[in-house]
């Protein structure tokens, strides 16, 4: 009786959970399947996930881009911006976190409170003056406005995450290093940074995904189409060619998600742990 009941509740569980699971990944599978469908099928056979023939041409047509600029340019732009932001975030974020976690200086608590407050600050509040400033110094239509936040410690949430992690590293290690004649920066470089690696991986992954996805900043600062990132290019593709070439559009959409999906495939445990412990997005 007991086992029968267990069997029943188990089957209900798996049916239910698989049902929701299908609904969860249906849009993603649909995107990938449709990116390989012939143009007419995307609408006439919309629900199906199986193309009647594999139209790899959609990918080459999409890659060729529109308005004379290919997606190679857009991907290159996204890679440049994202890699600089990620590397900058790791370097500056970790050193800022080290300062807050380990060094004593005047107004530290007040400044830490400022850091925490900026986590909840809506971007809209600084958007307009930032634009005016970058416009004044002639940085509109350059990558600098997109790169600068990454060179200034990155997202405050990342700094906070790193601070919390450094606080967990035993101080005895620092003290031993001081006895051995290590300087403050020596401790950061030789002791903290190597031990910080797990947290840095989490920060790198999320920083990569958020920067890769970013839409608002490139939308505001990049008007010159040779500078457009993948997100902006996709949006323009949708607006100008969307009604005629859904296949190539969905092909490029799938391609744009590839980095995130690969990160998920390889670092799934790391991501899940990252949000479970810190509450990241």
């Amino acid at each position: 009786m007991q086992t029968k009941k267990g069997l029943l509740s188990n089957s209900i569980f798996y049916v239910f959970v698989s049902g929701i699971g299908i609904a969860m990944i249906y849009p993603i599978l649909w995107m990938m399947a449709s990116s390989l469908k012939p143009a007419t099928e995307i609408f006439n056979n919309a629900i199906s996930l199986i193309p009647s023939q594999l139209m790899w041409e959609n990918y080459s047509a999409g890659w060729a881009g529109f308005g004379g600029i290919g997606f190679a340019t857009y991907f290159r732009n996204s890679v440049i911006v994202t890699s600089i932001v990620v590397v900058g975030t790791l370097l500056t974020g970790s050193i800022v976190a080290y300062g807050f976690a380990r060094l004593e200086f005047k107004f530290k608590n007040a400044l830490f409170a400022c850091l925490m407050a900026t986590i909840m600050l809506p971007v809209q509040i600084t958007l307009i003056p930032q634009y005016i400033i970058f416009n004044e110094v002639g940085w509109v239509n350059t990558f600098y406005p997109l790169l600068l936040p990454g060179l200034m410690g990155g997202q405050p949430f990342f700094i906070f995450l790193l601070i919390q992690f450094i606080r967990g590293i035993p101080r005895e290690l620092d003290e031993a290093a001081i006895v051995d004649g290590c300087s403050k920066m020596g401790i950061y470089w030789r002791i903290i940074l190597p031990l910080l690696r797990p947290a840095l991986v989490t920060v790198a992954l999320f920083s990569f995904m958020w920067t890769w996805d970013d839409f608002l900043a490139p939308l505001i600062y990049l008007n010159n189409s040779t500078l457009h990132t993948v997100t902006i290019a996709l949006r323009n593709f949708m607006d100008t060619q969307g009604s005629t070439s859904w296949g190539p559009l969905l092909a490029m959409s799938s391609l744009s998600l590839l980095p995130q999906l690969l990160i998920f495939a390889f670092f799934q445990k790391h991501l899940v742990q990252g949000i479970a412990t810190t509450g990241l997005k």
Binding site: M24, I25, P27, I28, W30, M31, M209, D213, F215, V230, T231, I232, L234, R235, M238, G242, L249, L250, S253, S254, S256, L257, Q260, L261, I263, F264, L271, K281
Partner: peptide, 14 residues
């Protein structure tokens, strides 16, 4: 998975 990619332009297209 949807939380990772939900905010992207690609998903908006979809």
């Amino acid at each position: 998975v949807p939380s990772i990619i939900g905010g992207s332009v690609a998903i908006a297209v979809v």
